[in-house]
Design a protein around this nucleic acid. Structure first.
Lengths: 240, 240
DNA sequence: TGTACATCAGTGAACGCGCGTTCACTGATGTAC
DNA sequence: TGTACATCAGTGAACGCGCGTTCACTGATGTAC
């Protein structure tokens, strides 16, 4: 079909044009369907317009294909969050946090198929060496940086920055996850965004009139532990 | 095998003894495995010590079996949360909220197989008339009641009660859900409980020194919408 | 008491399906000489 | 120019597997007479 430079083959570093077509088909199917249950090799092949065995000319197995499709979605989500924060200008940093939270929720609500696959770990990691550096974890980095800038600009945080970022991420994830699982056809995007706003407001107060409520021993021990999570496994917890 | 009153059959209202054995086997398998992926009719039958077709003598299909197993787990979780709150005596209502949050997290972390099936909706509702009254939604009722009592006892809530309860539930769900999906072998129960404590502290302040931060229009409109969620579906949201 | 029958939990074998993946083969293209 | 060969994307058919579920049958038990 395609005339390539040598023997009909066409490679360009990251892969052939066909390889990119296959990944694009996966993105389309995940976008159309709300989940990954029906994402089969045959369905992907049909979407591309080729036979299922042809996929194996470009991907070793299904895991590699799915990860190829997901990997740039993590980057896309991070980019959307960064763009939303940037669109606020250098104004109120609390509004930047809100904007990032909104971007996170919009992505999750707009691409449930991608989101569930990205954060509910149906798929094993393609590269075992990546365990401990799961791309999902980089998502909270933007939130953390934004909360940090809040703290530096006179806003009060109800928790230490590290813990506030983890709490905010978990809260947003919980909101969209419950929306996907239980409220799918009843709740609305607006309602989720309102919940997200309330969470941000609870974590970032306009004036630090209430002093830090530091969980005893958290900053000295647990935040180190949380930081360590991003690179290394760890034994059991301090509070049995 | 069993001598029954008529023709060997043995029914006692809720089902035969064998029916209860099958449900117990499902509970055991969900407890042993961290998920429901391997929960097949053949696996359940093997655990009971019977053949797979025998299950169909007691359950119409797999959906009915799984729901029979899950239904009492919702009640069990609610009971554990209520018991934890009760164990605090009539002391500090903020501590009761914490105790409930801890009970929620402990249940989720201790029974990941059950929890994921309960709140991630792999399984379609057995009884379509139940849509809109999913048992998962009753879980937040205990949190709501506790937060209400906080507000009545001089504690400040950073959000209206209704919204605070939804936010707390979503936050706890997000924490345990991320733990299950991404941090399974790295994070610890203690760390999750610390995060939960921080969330509770952010929502329930010891003194109402900061006035209610009411999302504009939330109490007048959205809280009615949230209440309505518990019984009826609804159209689209106000903030597109 | 014995005999015929009804009831019902339980079984082994199999059905039909969809899945990821493999395999022998095709056919178009480019190279070597 | 023609001919033999190499390369490689792509294909139809099939494999092996596990799944939920069905079906004809068994065998133990209790009842009727």
């Amino acid at each position: 079909m395609e005339a390539g430079p040598i023997g009909g083959g066409q490679r360009d570093g990251q892969g052939s044009r066909r390889r990119r077509e296959i990944v694009a088909a996966v993105q389309r199917l995940l976008g159309e369907w709300g989940s990954a249950e029906r994402l089969t090799m045959r369905a992907v092949a049909k979407e591309v317009g080729i036979s299922a065995p042809s996929i194996y000319l470009h991907f070793q197995d299904k895991t590699e294909l799915v990860w190829a499709a997901l990997e740039d979605r993590y980057g896309e989500l991070a980019a959307q969050m960064a763009a939303a924060a940037l669109a606020c200008g250098d104004a109120d940093p609390q509004r930047r946090v809100r904007a990032q939270a909104h971007a996170y929720c919009r992505f999750a609500l707009g691409s449930p198929g991608h989101y569930r696959l990205m954060f509910e770990a149906y798929q094993p990691a393609a590269d075992p060496s990546r365990i401990g550096a799961h791309p999902a974890r980089h998502i909270s980095a933007g939130l953390r940086a934004c909360l940090h800038s809040c703290a530096e600009n006179g806003f009060g945080l109800s928790l230490p920055v590290e813990q506030a970022a983890q709490t905010l991420w978990a809260g947003l994830h919980g909101m969209v996850s419950l929306h996907h699982s239980l409220y799918r056809d009843e709740s609305s995007e607006g309602l989720v965004l309102q919940l997200a706003d309330g969470l941000v407001d609870s974590l970032v107060t306009r004036a630090p009139c209430v002093p830090f409520r530091v969980t005893p021993g958290f900053e000295t021990e647990a935040s180190h532990r949380i930081r360590a999570l991003r690179s290394a496994p760890e034994p059991d917890g301090p509070q049995p």
